[in-house]
Amino acid sequence: MSTAATAPGRRVSLKTQNRVRRTTTGIIARAILIAVSLLFLVPLYWMVITAMKTDEELADFPPSLLPQSWNWSIFGEAVNAFPFWLQFGNSLLVTVLGTVLAVLSSYVVAYGFACIDWPGRDKVFYLVLATIFIPFPVAIIPLFDLFAWLGWVNTLLPLIVPNALGSAFYIFLLRQFLLQASVEAMDAARVDGASEWRICWQVVFPTARGALIAVAIFAAVASWNDFLGPLIYLQDPSVQTLAIGLQSFSTETDTSFNQLMAASTLTVLPMVVLFIFFQRYFVKGLNVGGFR
């Protein structure tokens, strides 16, 4: 590195200069950070505020920035206005099962791409990468016909089962992580006569926790937020997920905005809680596994 040879005198003055520059940029940076953070939170703030306004206050113009009184009962009203808990349960079922299947299957496939050295492996992996970019909707009609043929329409199966076939993006993330798994530990286990399957789950799996959690959060958010799938597959309100429940609720004539926003708030909440709990794994898992 050529820079090591700089004169000592110059370095001192540079340091002082840098300190001054750092404090000013620090203040400006913080101001920008706070402003941008607030900007990103404004729509969410407006959701909660609108939810808590009474019907009368909603009709006021211009709208108030804070509700005159906090109308907590709105959440009860919203939940009773449509089969909220039933559909919440459906969303939860799809999300939990879909996430478990997506994580496990993607992990197994990623292991196959990272930890077993087989001829042609990297060429096949190119194909995996290519499929990340295929616009999914291309498949909606054929898949609908397939699932209709299987008799799965109006059930949650079309939203859950495809997760068991791995997802290219998660496979990619996990593979990147697994490439750094300890080859020694694996080889030692192989020498001991452990099967590859056993190594996969007992030796490598426990070390991949951070990346697995990151992928799990991605998968959970994707399942919880899916709209087009439920829109096509679920017709009966008793099997619909919140995505469609909220949409139907909003098209009913006697739906008020505060109720809609209250129901939206309750829909958003589980994802927020999930994120806050697992935040540290999230960024870390990506860091270690992701784009090195």
Binding site: W46, M261, T267, V272, F275
Partner: peptide, 10 residues
């Protein structure tokens, strides 16, 4: 994290 459908209502 906000579902697109919920963000749409917002």
């Amino acid at each position: 994290l906000v579902p697109v459908f919920a963000l749409s209502f917002i």
